[in-house]
Nucleic acid binder design. Structure first.
Length: 497
RNA sequence: GGUUGGGUGGCCGAGCGGUUAGGCAGAGGUCUGCAAAACCUCGUACGGCGGUUCGAAUCCGCUCCCAACCUCCA
């Protein structure tokens, strides 16, 4: 169980043993959302993935500083219009109102998915000075040049001198060189097509603008992450994460900026999550192949037959590995819903389980301990949640078997039962971050619990006098209210479906 | 065209040289007044063609599909 944590590093394209720079501490930066419209599900999958990574690192005992930014300076779109600007016009709000509105919405959604808030959540507009300073360092080191008030990063010179450009994303420098000959026209102020803006001079109609040594303008689109990660985590930190689609150019350029500014690699481990697909294609806000979280919750979409709860969706996401694509389908969600419920019920069963009298460790005890060990080993192997969950389900079978009396409970020592309880609690709720949405007995439902106890008791009386008409009537009427009764060996329990 | 990563049983999804992943659905059984739940048993899948090997879903070659990135995107 104490085997080393291994993570897949995009930089080396291999799994590596994770060794933090400062023992016991982890600095992790994850690229956050651009807040110009509602969050979509794909974003949620990425942030749920990193939430589990954050939770597991914490569970292992690391003190984690988790930084996730809010991008509230617009990136330019094809038509030259800024995202934030677009939101502004659409909703007749000021840029900061747009940013605040969607930041709030984003936070609500993260809470809905039971994702923990980051330790620090910096905003791009709050770090203009840091960004300007970084640009200056890049210019001083000879990798930035100014043209008509805008500043660009000199990728060609950087690639030739530092030999790291393209390493993360697998781009070939020769291709860049080749381009420089044929495509030299038509690139405006840039020396080379692959050069990217560090600072943009604002056009007259551009609302978001700040003073700088070069012009009144706004920072380039890759710079904020470099500036803010440096500020809060240092020049080199442990983990940098984000969606796969950010690998190029965003992350490649971040590396270039850091190396260009201070000759240091920003992060030691780069982790990239894969895309959420629907109908076999990437879910994307821009091309409309999408379903919003609220639509998914309510079922109000042609893509699903019914609504699914946030925890069912979280469970569904965790059933695949974060580096694999995940195809969202109605069938898969239905399967996830059943699996999720089974897991929750079993976890309730475990917690209610009393030690057997005179229990002594037998084969079953060993089996349970082995499964628990394996579950943690899977988590330590690049956060393999699907495999960890597979082991968890094997434990579910054992738990239900003991409950039903098929498996000898007295073969499980008190110690192991306690470990089983704490594993279910720790792995399912603390690490995977699931919540029991159907749990009876939560705050406010005490009355319902009491009423249900009475109803179940009355039905028991009816059953013992073989008054099947009454007992079935009770069950059917509760069924209409979506309350399901479960008759077991040790009495009847209920669950709200 | 270049760069990544894929194609696994009815569906989703792990595995990446030899041992049943797991979930859901399906079949049979146990239990139960009946039903549900739970438990037990079952299916023997790896795009195609070659090759390496005692042995390949896992390695190599060829081939066919698919996706992402190369332009803002988690």
């Amino acid at each position: 169980m104490t085997q080393a944590l291994k993570v897949y590093n995009s930089l080396s394209r291999d799994k590596e043993v994770f060794e933090p720079i400062n023992e016991g501490h982890v600095g992790m930066y994850v690229c956050g959302p651009t807040v110009y419209s509602d969050v979509h599900l794909g974003n949620c999958r990425t942030f749920v993935s990193f939430d589990v990574i954050y939770r597991y690192l914490t569970y292992l005992g690391y003190k984690v500083r988790y930084v996730r930014n809010i991008t509230d300076v617009g990136h330019l779109l094809d038509d030259g219009e800024d995202r934030m600007l677009k939101g502004t016009k659409r909703e007749k709000l000021s840029p900061m109102e747009v940013a605040q509105k969607y930041t709030n919405g984003f936070h609500d959604m993260m809470r809905t998915f039971n994702s923990l808030p980051p330790s620090i959540e910096p905003r791009a507009t709050g770090h203009i000075i840091e960004q300007i300073e970084m640009i200056q360092s890049i210019i001083d080191n000879g990798y930035g040049y100014e043209k008509n008030g805008s500043v660009y990063f000199d990728t060609l010179k950087f690639a030739e001198e530092k030999k790291v450009y393209g390493k993360l994303s697998g781009r070939v420098i020769e291709d860049l060189m080749a381009e420089s000959r044929s495509d030299l026209k038509n690139q405006g102020e840039k020396k080379h097509p692959s050069d990217f803006a560090l600072w943009m001079k604002a056009s007259p109609e551009h609302i978001m603008r700040w003073n700088s040594p070069w012009s009144v303008g706004f920072p380039g689109w890759h710079l904020e992450c470099s500036a803010m990660s440096t500020k809060y985590l240092g020049k080199t930190f442990d983990i940098h994460g984000g969606g796969n689609d950010l690998k190029f150019p965003h992350h490649e350029n971040e590396v270039a900026q850091s190396v260009g500014a201070c000759n240091c690699q920003p992060a030691r481990y780069w982790l990239h999550t894969n895309m959420l697909l629907m109908n076999g294609r990437k879910m994307s806000k821009s091309d409309g192949n999408t379903i919003s979280p609220p639509q998914l919750f309510s079922g109000d979409s042609p893509h699903v037959s019914k609504g699914y709860s946030p925890m069912v969706i979280r469970f569904f996401m965790l059933q695949s590995h974060y580096r694999s694509t995940l195809d969202l389908t109605d069938d898969a969600l239905q399967a996830a819903e059943k699996g999720y419920r089974r897991l929750m019920e079993a976890s309730r069963t475990v917690q209610a389980m009393e030690p057997a009298a005179g229990a002594k460790a037998g084969p079953l005890d060993a089996e349970i301990n082995q499964l628990i060990d394996q579950a943690f080993e899977e988590m330590s192997d690049d956060f393999n949640t699907p495999k960890a969950m597979a082991r968890l389900f094997e434990l579910v079978t054992r738990v239900n078997g003991m409950k039903d009396g098929h498996l000898p409970k007295n073969e499980v020592s008190d110690e192991t039962l306690a470990r089983l309880k704490s594993t279910f609690e720790g792995l399912i709720f603390q690490v995977l971050g699931l919540k029991d949405e159907m749990a009876a007995g939560d705050n406010g439902t005490n009355l319902v619990d009491g009423l249900m106890d009475i109803i179940i008791d009355l039905r028991k009386d009816a059953r013992s006098s073989k008054d099947w008409a009454t007992s079935d009537k009770i069950r059917d009427m509760l069924g209409d209210l979506e309350v399901q009764l479960k008759d077991g060996k040790e009495g009847t329990t209920w669950v709200k479906n």
